[in-house]
Design a protein around this nucleic acid. Sequence first.
DNA 1: AGCACGCCGACT
DNA 2: GTCGGCGTGCTC
Length: 818
Amino acid sequence: MNRIALVVLSDSSREYDKEYTYLVPEDLIEEVHPGSRVIVPFGNSNRNAEGFIMGTEDVKELNTSYRLKYIKKVLDDIKWLDQWSIALCRWMRKRYICTYYDALKCMLPPGVGVKSIKSVILIKNTDHHNQTICEIIDVLIENGGECGLEELAAYIDKATFSRYIRQMEKEQIILIKEEFINKAKEKKVRVASLALPIDVIDEAINGNKIRSIQQIRVLEILKEAEYLSVADITKFSGASSSSVNTLQKHGYIYYKEVEVKRDPYTGRTYERSEAFLPTEEQAEVLKDALVKIETGGFYEALLHGVTGSGKTEVYLQLIKACFDRGMSAIVLVPEISLTPQMVERFKSRFGDEVAVLHSRLSAGERYDQWRLIRDGKKRVVVGARSAVFAPLERLGIIIIDEEHESSYKSETTPKYHARDIARERCSANNALLLYGSATPSVETYYRAARGEMVLYKMLDRPNNAVLPKVEIVDMRNELNEGNRSMFSNKLAQEIKKNIELKQQTILFLNRRGYSSFVICRSCGFTMKCPNCSINLTYHANNERLICHYCGFTVKNPVSCPKCNSRSIRHFGTGTQKIEDEVRKTFDGCSVIRMDMDTTAAKDSHEKILTTFKEKNINIMIGTQMIAKGHDFPNVTLVGVLAADSMLNLGDFRASEKTFQLITQVAGRAGRGQLKGRVIIQSYNTEDFSILTACNHDYMGFYKHEILLREKLGYPPFTNIGVIIISGPDDKIVSTNAKEVGETIVEFMEGCDEKPEVYGPMRAPLAFIKKKYRWRIIIKCKDIDNIIDAFTLIRDKLYKKFEKYFVEMSMDINPFNML
DNA sequence: AGCACGCCGACT
DNA sequence: GTCGGCGTGCTC
């Protein structure tokens, strides 16, 4: 009897992305289980590779055509994956056309991996006819008979070094020792601080001494914070660590080591809260859902609950029910809502059993949380998208709050949707999957409407809070009446009134920066990014033009680069411009702005919101990040400055996004005792998504939208596959794109349904980061046909693409089609 | 990514 | 002959 094991390698390369069969040696039988981490000999050279066990099996006969090798070593006694994660890993690989390791990485804490360290030991000191070999022996003797392989290679410095080492090993002159060291789980972290006073830094930036926007962003962030880890800097600035290194080299910043604080919530105490007595609506939902938990089968349910209807209390009581039955729970929330206030609600109910996972945890913190969860010390996990993979056992419920949020869709490989992962997990674990939203996604509502899942409704606002009064202002009329400002007369009047009443106002605009483009009025020249097919955006705070896609930046020109005319101006409206305008129009009022630019530094998001609330700032201006979370009892007026700005984006979700956004922004008004009002400015006042949002009419919106989706053949009636092919040479990209297109068309001819294939054509964002982009769209009812087509393309063409520096991204039902 | 293997030209 | 450089193919 032989025991064999299936092993996948911790190597993301496509070519050996397989489950390899290895023999389990007699003495390791007790240690090798599905989920353990091992070292296996791999390749002709039997190099040591790290891998994970996907499964084991006992077989009588080995009837493989090739000779199996033995597993060399078990790395640790941790079971990294359980049965469901292994199954999910296989499923993800197929569904998202990624590698096993891409999928595995989602389920493992960061920093898992081994580094191999090889050293060379001299065992036979002989004279050798070969000069290089003699040289190596000399170096080894000098080092006391042992030397690290890499050091040795550096000493010898010859291209043929490894050839000799192999020969020496064969002739038993040397012995190669290999050790495996876990990649450091840092307890200390390297942080960076500004090395020069802020005004010197500013001077360097303004004097064009520092020109890379990455570097400027890093410095801007460090100006706010005393010090930040390099990992955090790169995360918040979007710059790579190399730009941080350059700054250090040039002496603008310096590094030091700092102890990592492990539990981000240590030191906070939480008052224990007890369950509230549910309202009538809540009780009804709970009654039904609790039966489902009790029964213990796989169920899906949509909780359609308006803002403020008390969804969180329902969540808490359902989790409690799971708890009482020894089961665990996952709560997914959009990253933006992971505020201390939100966390507090869970912590105060479940205390230390709650683990919080979000993107701002350091690798060490993440690892700690992962271990605590896996060891059963934490049974409630609250977190953003990736928390859906939390290694909980006996899962009772997964809750996806704000189910329609786009942040649940990953934009990097594997491009999963947390909803789909949750569904796989819950069905494998017989758990309840609860979606919650005030504005459910059309896809989810459709499934509920068709009876594929239970639909719970909580449409009353508690304490009889009245819905804010919503008014639409047609900006075309304003223009006709000679009002060229960005505030309609009505809105300006209401803002003034609010300032007098010392009540607060939120102004919402979906565009950051100062204005959208810079144009020369004499010759019509517009400032474009040299790397992207995008107009540069003017940013007033540093008098620069920035590309929002690649970060390219130049100083704002005083004269037109083409015709030298001085009448080059910026047009359009961004949040920065609104801020200026507000200050000019409403004398002496206090203003605060919240967008990507002002929230780059750590915790600044939180700080801005607290300042706004506590200092009773008159007006807050922001992009969509202000749309959710946070109750501001004193906000009585919300102004949406350009409600139609998203409608013409060429995206089948444009109406849905508009509806959701307006509904959410409007929900910010009148959360306290005072009645709220909302003013919506738009050039397109007839659009149904704006009208229904103003009437707080989800059903009206849904009924209209679902008909459109059916007529036009969009999800949920079809699946849409998008392939973007990109690369530095337009010709090469387009010919390769054509080949992809032909392959798809050919493949689809063999399918039972007649799918539609569009393209290849230039992507709407045709040139980004110096790469030309071509796009192919497939519309197809059966998602498996798209998956199969994608898989075929990958297998057939990836090698060729590598050769031609062509990149390809494939996504099914993406949130971003551009 | 390594490494074996094979081919070829340069150097002694 | 031997050495060194380079292209190709393979990984249970």
